[in-house]
């Protein structure tokens, strides 16, 4: 890995860890959403780092532009309906930390076998390659994804509209 690649790696690592830590440990709702935004942006950065330009743009559009705004709307709606204190509560426990650490250990040990077969630099991917896959081998998956989005949209409307009586 080149010097600039290493620099990008550590910047992305710091951004994603800081964002994820804010999401998990932050007490203020607004800060938690900001941390989530930083984490999602860092994920887009990781996609760029691995040469997946189209994925990075989709991540920014869908997550940072869509899901994050949706989360903000939900928080505003909830706190308007609930009138509650915006502070987040959590129960930090040694047992929970032990479970999370165990999962981390299992993942690292099980993925260790894949490490030696890695190269240094990923191949950059163009949008043409992705769209060729979507219109070729992955066409049924694309249709299924469209159906899933439609189902999620209908489900969200039904869930939101089913209350109030």
């Amino acid at each position: 890995m080149t010097m600039s690649g290493q620099l990008a790696f550590w910047i992305l690592a710091a951004l994603s860890v800081a964002g994820a830590a804010t999401v998990v440990f932050g007490r203020d709702v607004t800060r938690m959403v900001l941390g989530l935004g930083a984490f999602l942006l860092s994920v887009a950065g990781w996609f760029l780092f691995f040469g997946q330009t189209f994925l990075a743009v989709a991540q920014v559009f869908v997550y940072v532009g869509g899901v994050l705004v949706l989360v903000l709307f939900a928080i505003m709606l909830v706190h308007r309906a609930e009138g509650a204190d915006p502070a987040l509560t959590s129960r930090h426990d040694v047992d929970i930390a032990a479970v999370a650490l165990s999962v981390f250990g299992i993942m690292v040990v099980s993925l260790r076998s894949a490490w030696p077969s890695m190269t240094e630099g990923p191949v950059p991917t163009s949008t043409t390659q992705v769209s060729a896959q979507f219109l070729g081998a992955y066409l049924p998956h694309l249709e299924a994804a469209g159906l899933l989005l439609l189902a999620a949209l209908v489900a969200a409307i039904v869930i939101m509209g089913g209350e109030g009586e």
Binding site: A58, V130, L142
Partner: peptide, 23 residues
Amino acid sequence: PGALGAIGVLIIVVAAAEAAVGL
């Protein structure tokens, strides 16, 4: 790499649907 991008987009779609229903 194109297939990897396609699979990644599908994951993003599923995660977005999950977020919409969850919220």
